[in-house]
Structure formats: C-alpha cells, structure tokens
Simulated scan of single mutants.
Amino acid sequence: MTTHRNPAKPALAPESGRALRVVAEGVPAAVRPDKRARDGRYPIAWLTITAPRGVTPTATSICQCGRNLFAAGHHKALALIADHTDHKTRCPLRADQEGAAA
C-alpha cells in the first residue's frame, strides 16, 4: 500500500490561514491579496528623492494638477520636500476629493 499523494490534486491549505492554489501540477503557490482592488483612492502626487552617496541629491515633485518641480542640491531638495508636503493642503485636486468624501 502506498501513501503518496496524487500530484494532480491541489495541496491542502497550511495552518497559517493562507489558501494555496496549484499553478502547475503539484506545485502550490500562496494566494496573495489582489493589489488592484480599488477602494476609491488613487495617487495624484509623487515625490521622488535621489540621494546616492557622494553625489548631489535631487528631488522631483509631480502632481496631476500640473505641478512639476525639480531641485538639485541638499538645501534645495529639502525645501522642495517641505513644499511638496505643504502642497497636499493646497492642491485643488485634493481639496475636491476631501470635500466629496465629507
């Protein structure tokens, strides 16, 4: 009598609570949450900071309202980062979103 499992059948879910699915015959893979699930929010502004060791740091602030700013140098990049944070309170696109939610 053999006790091996049939490789064509899906594996049982582990004790951790994550369900498994079979992607190939006998090869289980963890099922992850759908990253594309929408909750009504979406990004409208991006801040990109580049500061490699020994090179001038840079920062870019882009927003869907038309904002597109760039700064190079330590002090200018820090000022742009602070301005990007402040822009969140002044952006007309964010004000519309927050008003609609209320």
Rank of each mutant, 00 (worst) to 15 (best):
T89K: 15
C65D: 07
G26D: 06
A11N: 04
L12R: 15
T85D: 14
T48D: 10
A8V: 09
P43Y: 00
C91R: 01
M1K: 11
G17K: 00
Q97L: 15
T60Q: 12
A102I: 12
R67D: 05
I49T: 02
R53M: 07
V27Y: 03
A95R: 14
R18G: 07
D39W: 06
P10D: 03
A101P: 00
N6G: 04
E15A: 08
G17H: 01
A11C: 07
A101Y: 05
A19V: 05
G17R: 05
A71F: 08
P28E: 02
A71R: 10
A79H: 11
P28H: 04
A51H: 13
R90M: 15
L78K: 00
N68I: 01
M1D: 09
D96C: 09
G40T: 04
T2N: 13
P92M: 09
C63R: 01
A102W: 10
A71W: 09
A71Y: 09
K88M: 09
I62H: 08
I62A: 07
P57L: 05
F70W: 15
E98V: 15
N6Y: 07
H84C: 08
D39L: 04
A30W: 13
A37F: 09
A30V: 12
L93M: 13
K88R: 09
A24W: 14
A30M: 11
R21A: 12
A79G: 08
W46D: 00
R21M: 12
C91V: 01
H4A: 13
C63T: 00
P92G: 07
V55T: 08
G66M: 04
A59N: 03
G26W: 07
H87I: 13
L69N: 07
P33N: 01
T89D: 14
A95N: 08
A101T: 00
R32T: 08
G26Y: 05
V22S: 15
D83L: 13
R90S: 13
T3W: 12
D83F: 06
A30P: 12
N68Y: 07
G99Q: 13
R53F: 04
R94A: 15
R18L: 14
